[in-house]
């Protein structure tokens, strides 16, 4: 194991995959400026600075992917993906299907998002659900350095287009990463970060830590919370969530992204349609507001679900159950 930041984990994954497969190339605004060692190791042909032109960066990745290369593009901040939507959604996501399977699009689009840098709404917008809604795309949003490295390596080897979101607040967070260059984390597998039997807390990216803090507080109150880190949002690991829910009967979903039509809504629907009989309390969604990301530190933090809010939600769920039992006993 080596201790490294998420930023270093990304770099190491890129270096290893470029070493392993000469069809892998990296394109984006500043990739050659910032990653001089990759230019030296693999040449300027495979590490390409681009104009500030997200639409054609993404389109070029789509064309190159369909023609035998395996591009990774760095689009910097998630809101910039709006310029790249046509290439990613209409081309990468649809042309495999529309062509009857004639083409594959092995490409990875990197971008950063989330609160923590006070950059405001045009650099911080959690768009993951928008892309999960687009057919043909996979969506990844990890929370640890080991997962970032393992999932990025798996994403580069995947034959489908993958949107790879990095949480800005976690970029400099350190974690233990396996030294084995074969280390990979398969897309579509959630991780149980903490086992518990009373309530299931589901999250991804920075709010996994919020859930872990809440679980520690709840333990002091005699409540055993299970914490699931989705890691991949599409394909969604439904089995891990459902297995946990069948055990605990209670679900709290915690996301930084806003609630309407988001991942939290999807998980609530999963619980209602596939585990209704197991539910012992209504599902709780703790999400960011339907508001653009503010820049002020105080407002930025106010938009985030807190560990205290998670604890209160869980206490509320248990209270509801208690009240229900009392009502039943009185009847």
């Amino acid at each position: 194991m080596t201790r490294m930041t998420i930023e270093q984990a990304i770099h190491q994954a890129l270096a290893e995959e470029m070493q392993r497969d000469e069809r892998v190339l990296l394109m984006g605004e500043g990739v050659a400026t910032k990653r001089r060692d990759l230019v030296q190791a693999f040449g300027a042909t495979r590490v390409r600075n681009t104009p500030l032109a997200e639409a054609v960066i993404a389109g070029t990745a789509v064309g190159a992917a369909a023609s035998g290369l395996r591009p990774v593009i760095d689009l910097l901040f998630a809101p910039f993906l709006a310029y790249a939507m046509d290439a990613l959604v209409n081309s990468a996501g649809k042309l495999r299907y529309l062509s009857g399977g004639q083409f594959e699009f092995p490409l990875v689009a990197l971008s950063m998002t989330g609160s923590g840098w006070c950059v405001g709404a045009q650099h911080n917008h959690n768009l993951e659900a928008m892309f999960a809604h687009a057919p043909g795309l996979k969506v990844v949003m990890p929370s640890t350095a080991a997962d970032v490295k393992g999932l990025l390596k798996a994403a580069i080897r995947d034959n489908n287009p993958v949107l790879f979101f990095t949480d800005l607040a976690l970029l400099h967070q350190e974690g233990e990463v396996p030294d084995d260059s074969a280390h990979r984390v398969p897309l579509g597998q959630a991780a149980v970060r903490r086992a518990g039997t009373d309530v299931t807390l589901v999250s991804y990216a920075k709010t996994v830590e919020v859930c872990l803090q809440a679980a520690a507080q709840l333990q002091g109150q005699g409540i055993a919370a299970e914490v699931i880190d989705l890691r991949t949002l599409k394909p969604l690991d439904e089995a891990t969530v459902l297995n946990s829910l069948r055990k605990t009967g209670r679900l709290v979903v915690v996301t930084e992204a806003s609630g309407l039509c988001g991942m939290a809504a999807e998980l609530a629907a999963l619980a209602a349609t596939r585990a209704f009989d197991a539910l012992r309390a209504p599902v709780v969604r703790l999400t960011g507001p339907d508001a653009p990301g503010a820049s002020s530190w105080v407002l930025e933090q106010a938009a985030l679900p807190s560990a205290d809010a998670v604890v209160q939600a869980v206490q509320g769920m248990r209270a509801e159950v208690a009240v229900g039992r009392e009502a039943l006993a009185a009847s």
Partner: peptide
């Protein structure tokens, strides 16, 4: 948008 990638 895709043509430069095919040419690349």
């Amino acid at each position: 948008s895709m043509a430069p990638g095919v040419a690349l």
